[in-house]
């Protein structure tokens, strides 16, 4: 990208975290499996090979210079490492095929993850290390972890799992304890590899469960996760896509410093929790990035910046959820250019 900028993405983020002056806000589209496009890799060979996953993200960063480099393929990667069987389409994100906990009794077989050897975690670790070596001076490398509730749902089967919030709460807590330990093990491994891990909890979205269930079954475990992340002096980042208006106050109580949100008005989010947390969002992946055009995307970016750039605890311009695989190059460029233009400090959107 031909953009003369004063700070590297890493310097910018460090300055923001330390409350110092920066040239502009962070512009961080959620580039996840989309990174595979930069090396023309089918998703399956991208996400099952650490070298590919790392190199594609390096190439993608060199192409777009987005402010955060994420390492991710699916929210179920941790569940996979703990025993859930996945299905790997040729050119799409992996999906759950057979949950590990087929019966209640299978819980006795469930063990906290060993990141160095279980599932595709070694693939992620290699990708993190390659990126840290190649571009780690300029940008933070951020592996994405399925948080406890989402990982537990993928271990038990989401439909069964959420019914058991009523019918078998003891089982839910038993699974959650083990997945929380797994998330902490994974955080340790990623930090050791030079990454800055973040967590995603989409199964706890407001269109799925009630605030009461969020408080009982999700919040205590998230608190444990962010306390662990804070023990490394790293910021806690919580991404929940879908509708979050109802649960965003709970999200802000989790100890997370940054909330990445999708289907909620940023102005509303700012009013609800802006005095507690930094907000991150929320250009529409489908209507904007995938189906929109540069003009539509520019307007969406502008709208986000107008609504949230004055958020008391800060704002990061992002997409609401993963940048779709088939997002046209010119749309990605439009997002980044509009972001860099409108997010200059002080903000002048016109």
């Amino acid at each position: 990208m031909n953009v003369a900028e004063e700070m590297t993405p890493k310097e910018r983020m460090q300055a923001i975290l330390q409350g110092k002056d920066t040239d502009r806000l962070l512009v961080s589209p959620l580039v996840l499996n989309f990174a595979s496009r930069s090396l023309h890799l089918p998703v399956r060979s991208f996400c099952t090979n650490g070298r590919n996953m790392g190199d594609a993200n390096i190439a993608c960063f060199k192409r777009y210079r987005h402010d955060i480099v994420y390492i991710f393929s699916t929210t179920s990667t941790l569940a996979e490492a703990m025993g859930t069987r996945m299905y790997f389409p040729e050119d799409d994100a992996p999906q759950v095929e057979t949950p590990f906990l087929q019966t209640r009794e299978d819980i006795t077989k469930l063990k906290p993850v060993e990141p160095e050897k279980d599932g595709r975690i070694p693939v992620y670790l290699e990708a993190v290390k390659r990126c840290v070596d190649a571009i780690g001076d300029e940008v933070f490398i951020v592996p994405v972890i399925g948080a406890p509730f989402t990982t537990s749902a993928a271990l038990r089967g989401t439909e069964t799992f959420i019914k058991e919030l009523y019918t078998d709460p003891a089982l839910i807590h038993a699974i959650m304890k083990i997945t929380t330990q797994s998330v902490k093990n994974l955080i340790d491994a990623y930090v050791k590899a030079g990454g800055v891990p973040v967590t995603v909890e989409p199964v706890a979205t407001g269109s799925m469960i009630s605030e009461r269930h969020f408080r009982t079954f999700v919040l205590p475990y998230l608190k444990e996760v962010y306390a662990h992340i804070h023990s490394y002096s790293l910021p806690g980042v919580l991404h929940i896509c879908g509708k979050t208006k109802r649960v965003i106050p709970c999200m802000a109580e989790s100890g997370a410093d940054i909330l990445s949100i999708d289907n909620i008005d940023l102005k509303e989010a700012k009013e609800l929790v802006g005095d507690k947390v930094c907000l991150m969002g929320n250009v529409s992946p489908a209507d904007g990035m995938l189906k929109g055009n540069p003009e539509i995307i520019t307007n969406m970016v502008k709208d986000c910046v107008i609504k949230a750039s004055d958020n008391p605890k800060g704002f990061i311009l992002a997409t609401g959820c993963e940048v779709p695989l088939k997002t046209p190059h010119e749309n990605m460029v439009a997002f980044l250019e509009a972001g860099r233009r409108f997010a200059r400090l002080p903000i002048h959107v016109n």
Partner: peptide
């Protein structure tokens, strides 16, 4: 009215 969510609907249907 967002008083019931997905788990509730599944169990009511059961």
């Amino acid at each position: 009215n967002e008083e019931y969510f997905v788990p509730e609907i599944l169990l009511c249907a059961d």
